[in-house]
């Protein structure tokens, strides 16, 4: 397996606040890593570190770039975008090509056809000329996922993709990710441990430190050993997740 990104003993944070302490993680091709951990534990900081939005305070990150093609695709948290910005769904998806186009790059007819294909694949073709603000939470996530994958990145990074979406989209999303995983590595941050462990291959517990768990089966006592105080939640039919607490209050916010 070829490595894509190697994090070596990296520390990261904001100003004086060091959030991640000397973490190491290597992401290989075909990986499907679920990143779990408590709020404020540094999950999003890890994402920013991998994307190069944050420079490591110590340690290093090695990117194994190839001569062509995009290295990372990124689905940010929904709440971070300006919903009234005048941009259409097609333009949002096309903006995923900017890494390979660079500043001032022209969009070709082939690019637009590719965007149309991706939009079709996301099931929002009828909305392609709509502005982003007219979409529901789930539809918006589809558009942003389209942007993240249009350049066929080697590593797809998703930050809490299942917040503010409907159950239908969540199901479609995981199906789609499993298919995409055949051609790209995936790193997915989620608060919903019970669900993601069904789909991911391995788990990274992030709580100021990072503990890599080379399996998708994790127990409450292992979580405790990793200093990762989160509750495992069952959805009943999920067979191989060992459960700590059964929580009936858990459900997703529906915006559709």
């Amino acid at each position: 397996m070829e490595p894509i990104v190697e994090i070596r003993n990296a520390s990261a944070g904001y100003n004086d606040d060091v959030v991640l302490h000397s973490i190491s993680l290597t992401i290989f091709e075909k990986d499907y890593i679920g990143v779990i951990g408590p709020n404020g534990g540094g999950k999003t900081t890890l994402v920013k570190l991998i994307l190069g939005l944050l420079q490591p305070l110590q340690g290093e990150i090695i990117y194994h770039r190839q001569s062509s093609g995009s290295l990372t695709g990124y689905l940010p948290q929904v709440s971070n975008t300006d919903k009234s910005f005048p941009i259409t769904v097609t333009e949002v998806v096309l903006s995923g090509l900017m890494s390979e186009k660079g500043a001032g790059g022209r969009l070709t007819r082939a690019d637009r056809e590719r965007a149309a294909e991706i939009i079709q694949m996301m099931g929002i073709y009828h909305l392609r000329h709509k502005s982003i603000g007219e979409l529901s939470g789930g539809q918006m996530q589809r558009a942003f996922l389209g942007r993240a994958i249009i350049a066929q990145p080697r590593l797809l990074i998703l930050d809490e993709p299942n917040t503010f979406v409907d159950n239908k989209f969540e199901h479609d999303l995981y199906e789609l990710l499993s298919r995409l995983n055949e051609t790209m590595a995936i790193l997915m941050v989620s608060h919903d441990v019970g669900t993601i462990t069904t789909y991911v291959k391995t788990i990274a517990c992030v709580n100021r430190n990072l503990h890599y768990h080379p399996s998708n089966i994790i127990t409450q006592s292992q979580l405790a050993a990793y200093n990762c105080p989160i509750q495992l939640i069952t959805h009943g039919e999920v067979p191989h997740t060992v459960l700590g607490v059964h929580n009936h209050n858990h459900h997703h916010q529906d915006h559709d």
Partner: peptide
């Protein structure tokens, strides 16, 4: 203009 962070993550100036 739409998503500065995304642009920075993809190394635009």
């Amino acid at each position: 203009a739409f998503d500065e962070e995304y642009a920075r993550a993809h190394r635009l100036p």
